[in-house]
């Protein structure tokens, strides 16, 4: 399966076929999910209407973690089997994952303002997501820092693996640190198990976010491949005899 998809042309054909379905699923799930989340589902008895932030916040948190895992997996594949496409997928997924992380942080901050009364608490989860955001930034910055695109790809893939080993350690440390520093009175979201009327929109939104991510990923990979083709064509054109008059 992996090696089957490693052929860029084949990947693009399949991607092309899947793309409309991704858009359809994304539109459908996010649409109905929002309807359930904003209209059908009840307000929380403690937090009131602000609990509806959860339907954006929690799926984007899942996506932030999931996309980073995806980048780590494709990076390992890229380094082991040297699939050029795996590098491309990792590089294309990173800004999307960083975007989900930012959405998660912003919605978390808004939610914190309404339910904890402050824009930012040094809560373990918030802090871990913030660190994850910096891991994304490092990955993207390292990938873009080399004149030789191939070297950037390989360095970034290695960094993604190092980061993946470190994510659990950072998470554990921050959890421990937070319980040490935080007063125990800080409200914890969650608590009782979640009611189906809230779970349905949450899951719908999560599926919608995944489909939306896949659609954007296919678009980004396609654009990247097209750009490489253009570059290769320009290289060929530059060496052709007719192009000698071109200014250097």
């Amino acid at each position: 399966m992996i090696h089957f998809l490693a052929n860029p042309a084949r990947f693009m054909r399949i991607g092309q076929a899947v793309l409309p379905w991704c858009w359809a699923v994304a539109g459908l799930c996010i649409g109905t999910g929002l309807w359930f989340a904003l209209i059908v589902s009840p307000a929380d008895y403690q937090q009131g209407e602000s609990v509806r932030i959860m339907y954006i916040h929690v799926p984007s948190a899942w996506m932030a973690l999931g996309v980073y895992t995806l980048i780590a997996v494709v990076s390992a594949m890229a380094l082991v089997w040297k699939h050029p496409l795996a590098f491309l997928i990792g590089r294309a997924a990173a800004p999307l994952g960083a975007g989900f992380t930012v959405i998660c942080l912003i919605t978390g901050s808004l939610w914190g303002q309404t339910s904890w009364g402050t824009w930012w608490v040094w809560d373990a989860r918030l802090t871990s997501v913030l660190v994850l955001f910096f891991l994304y930034l490092g990955y993207m910055a390292l990938g873009a820092a080399f004149d030789d695109a191939d070297r950037g790809n390989r360095a970034a893939a290695l960094l993604a693996l190092v980061g993946a080993v470190n994510v659990p350690i950072i998470k554990f440390s921050v959890d421990w640190w937070s319980t040490l520093h935080q007063p125990a009175s800080v409200l914890r979201v969650g608590g009782p198990s979640i009611h189906p009327s809230m779970l349905t929109p949450l899951l719908l939104m999560a599926v919608g976010f995944i489909a939306y991510f896949l659609a954007l990923l296919i678009l980004r990979v396609r654009a990247e491949i097209a750009q490489r083709k253009v570059q290769a064509a320009m290289m060929v054109g530059a060496t052709a005899p007719g192009m000698q008059t071109h200014e250097t």
Binding site: V131, G138, A141, L142, A145, D147, A155, L158, N166, I170
Partner: peptide, 27 residues
Amino acid sequence: ALTLGARRAGVLISLLVLPLYIPVLIF
């Protein structure tokens, strides 16, 4: 090692390494 030959390696290295330093700092 990762930033060898990179542009602005000195600044870049801080972005890569500082998040990984957090556990050591905490403990």
